[in-house]
Design a protein around this nucleic acid. Structure first.
Lengths: 185, 185, 185, 185
DNA sequence: CATGAATGAGGGTTCATTCAT
DNA sequence: AATGAATGAACCCTCATTCAT
């Protein structure tokens, strides 16, 4: 792992554990076992570091979630794949998950970052729109539908992490059905 | 409004707008138009101030949500009443809503505060359990069901606040049905 | 005991135990079980309170030490009486003793207080001068002789308080002889 | 002189002149002509700074006092050497001397510092014990004897500093004899 | 490029003192 | 006279950022 990634991992961990302002650069540097100055070699400021971690986490998650799927899948099945991947990603990467949760809508993430991140998730909007057209999904605003799906995922991941419950395929199906029931027609 | 409430409102507003650490006591005092020292007349520390605002917001919300309902209502209707009240509360009190969202699960809210707050929401758990018994609600863990309902409300309130959409009774019914579909058998 | 004395006793105790600046007026008032404002009814400021305690302690000690003695005593015996009274006073009033020790020569005692206090101890200077004339005491500067006697007393009281040793008449004689040997011709 | 020493000298001077709590770090930094933050580069806290100055002053004094002496000196002569060195040290380093005086037995010096400091002065205790064995010194507790000698030195240095009197060899002999008479058999 | 000591603005908090009651 | 909530200057300390090495 290169120095930049080590710094980001250390920052991610400490910011989640201690909060953004109780994770000073000096502590992040110590955790990453790099000199303080090195952090500033790679990132102009703490704000830029945080935004970069945020965007990277979002991009990493979207790459996992939206990795290739068989073509011409029924909408429900495509949604199920994305949903399962998202939940698994959250459960497997709790730090990254909580980091995103903690900073979404916070004033520390720039509008530009938010904008860039949104682009990574266009596929969901497309699928939702298609679902509305085919009559499988409720004809609500897609932003709202997306919000419903996304908060559902957040709630489930938080629950799974808090209860330390194992996520077996049967449970996955049950829980995805909760989500699908929310938006299905 | 007494001085204590003015301080809490000012703190609530600034913490939501700027984040906890970009809302220094000096700024809160200026916003509330009280001297810095006065904040410490009412609150021993910033941490205690934040916890008190959090608990008050949660209590206020729960009192709105769980105000009296007609007896012997069907479960779905009782849930609907609570759900509608919660969403309306969030839409009408965006600062309080975002404050709670921002600080839930944060290290700045003491376990004791979390504990006290949880007690205010027992009624949902009771209704959910009853729903499971009557076969109307999916036989999942009630903590999980609660999480699903709660994140659904959060998603909807966030969407309504972001889109500045009016919340008319028709929309309420549609949106509650999304929530109910999530958990209904 | 009147309110003023209660306040002074509380202040004396706390200042000795915690240091002048870790004994805030609010704490002194609490210890004395009087309202904060009452302290300012009797003393214009903390500084004035401290100076008054200092002068009172010194006056009280000098009144004990220089209470009447049989007339025409030999110098050594008169010194012995004063010495014993001083040591006993220190051992019996450790708080007052440490208070005086802590604040002598401190910038918190005004020159005026120092001046007034000095007047209470003229008798020692007279006896020392007489002793020099009769050839019983070393012909050194009386301020120096006084300093020698005084620091000797301080050393002994501190030792007795620290070691919690009882001060019986035999020990008193031995220890006074140490002091007398210091200045005798 | 390196920056650390400059800070210590500035702190020493201001604390003696104004008292510990009227010598804020900001003033110490100004006196030392360093930024406030630099003080914290060298000392974790004001308390640690004060303890370090205290230990350094005590160590410095003990190194002067207990520098090598000719072997096999008679006890009185060895005591005389230490006594003279101590008095000269006090007269030549009034700030350090008053600093130690002001903080000995204060709650601001940690027990650990006191402990470390005590070890620097073992030689006096050894000499006093030897003197008791040879019958030259009164058979009193060595802590008490030490206290008597030490307070004698303090009294004399204070007197010399206050009276601005020169300390010539003849006076030294006279004054040491006062001290010796106090403890000799 | 790499480093980490140095910097100083700004944070939370305290407390002597006041003054409306 | 008695009270104690209110006040704000001043305290100690932190930490993002810089820059000489």
């Amino acid at each position: 792992m290169v120095k930049k990634e080590i710094i980001e991992q250390a920052a991610l961990k400490l910011i989640v554990e201690r909060g953004l302002y109780d994770a000073p650069i000096s502590l992040i540097a110590k955790e990453a076992q790099v000199p303080v100055g090195s952090v500033y070699t790679y990132y102009e400021s703490k704000e830029i570091l945080v935004n970069e971690i945020y965007r990277n986490a979002k991009r990493d998650m979207s790459q996992h979630v939206f990795a290739s799927v068989p073509p011409d899948l029924p909408i429900k099945e495509e949604m199920a794949i994305y949903w399962v991947r998202a939940v698994r990603y959250g459960v497997s990467n709790p730090n990254a998950f909580y980091f995103m949760e903690q900073l979404t809508n916070s004033p520390h993430i720039s509008p530009l970052s938010q904008e860039q991140v949104r682009g990574e998730f266009v596929r969901v909007f497309q699928v939702l729109e298609k679902g509305i057209e085919t009559g499988e999904i409720k004809p609500l605003n897609v932003d709202l539908l997306h919000q419903l799906v996304y908060t559902n995922i957040i709630g489930i991941v938080k629950y799974l992490l808090a209860s330390k419950m194992e996520l077996d395929p049967t449970l996955e199906v049950h829980l995805f059905n909760c989500c699908w029931d929310t938006i299905k027609c």
